[in-house]
Amino acid sequence: MANRSYLYSLSNRPTSYTDRPETISGVSEWNYDVPFMYRLLMSGDPQLCASLISDGLDDDEADEKVKLYAISSRFEPGFARVKRFIDIVRFLAAQAPVPEPAAPPAAPPAAPKALSLIERIKSRLSSSTASMAPPAIAAPAATTPATGSTQLPKWLDETLAFLEAHRDEHLLLETIELDTMSESEEAPLRACVEQELARCQQAGAALDALPQDTAAAAQLLREAGATKQAAPLDAFFGLRFDDDCDSTRSRATEYPLGLQWSEVLYFGLFNRAEFEAAQRGDAAAA
């Protein structure tokens, strides 16, 4: 099983594992990484909060559980940044060249027509005259400026539609599976989450540092993705703005943009009513 980061929309900031929201929905999950779009969404006042995935590690004693942390943020400020970012990336996609359609196959040559003796003589005379004329200069082939991003505009539209349909008061980013790949004690695990929280803040600061003019912002974004810039624009470094924006498996990019969304996650978290019902069931079974 892959270790993942998990993103949810929900109605509160959890203060404990049992502080369940009235509403909660899955938004996305990502193998072995936290994509840029997660961080940008989480950039609206991110704060440490309790994890809702687990109230301790598997080998903890019941009375000595490691406290696990996640990140909570307000939905609307991060979503506003995402919408502006999508406008800029859409502008970039429209500027890139698009492949021309393939030319239709040439028709097979017609079978040669049988010529009379007079016609063959005339044909030889015509060929001789043509060979004396200067060669014709071919006109330059027409080039069509267009884009290499055939899927990216569709993915951007789907991103906006999905997030609009899953708006709530807050967002929750869970990185516990990633963090426990390297740490197993409470203080280092908390430090991992604090480092991720700082990356979310940096993503928001990077977006805010782009010029208000969309064309100028797109140019700077392209440069920052390709060449590492000074902070806060270094948060963009490594991003691609084409159909390979999430192609981590093929190594086309190592830093995914993160344009894959789903309500169905490996960890489907209980809301308050579901959590309390499960607890009553456990108590009854005991």
Rank of each mutant, 00 (worst) to 15 (best):
M1S: 09
N3Q: 13
R4W: 11
S9F: 03
S11K: 05
P14A: 14
D19K: 12
D19M: 14
E22S: 12
T23M: 09
Y32G: 10
V34Q: 07
F36L: 07
M37T: 13
P46N: 04
P46Y: 07
Q47G: 00
L48N: 13
C49D: 10
C49P: 09
A50R: 09
L52I: 14
D55C: 12
G56K: 08
D58T: 08
D59L: 10
A62S: 08
E64H: 14
K67R: 05
L68Y: 06
L68D: 04
A70F: 12
S72E: 04
S72Y: 09
S73A: 11
P77M: 05
A80W: 02
V82N: 02
K83D: 06
V89Q: 10
V89R: 09
L92E: 06
A93C: 11
A94Q: 12
P97G: 14
E100V: 10
E100L: 13
P101W: 15
P105K: 04
P105F: 02
A107P: 10
P112M: 12
A114F: 00
S116C: 13
I118H: 13
I121C: 11
S128W: 15
A133F: 12
A136L: 05
A139T: 08
A141V: 05
T143F: 04
T144C: 05
T144L: 10
S149M: 07
K154S: 09
E158N: 13
E158V: 06
E164V: 02
A165G: 07
H166M: 04
D168W: 01
H170P: 01
L171H: 02
L172K: 05
L172G: 02
L172F: 08
D179W: 08
S182Y: 10
S182T: 03
E186R: 08
L189V: 02
R190N: 00
A191D: 14
A191S: 12
A198G: 09
G204A: 06
D208V: 13
D208E: 14
Q212V: 12
L220E: 08
K228R: 13
A235R: 09
D242Q: 09
D242P: 07
D242Y: 04
A252N: 15
E254G: 01
G258A: 05
L259Y: 02
L265S: 00
N271H: 09
R272D: 11
E274H: 08
A278T: 02
Q279R: 09
A283C: 00
A285M: 13
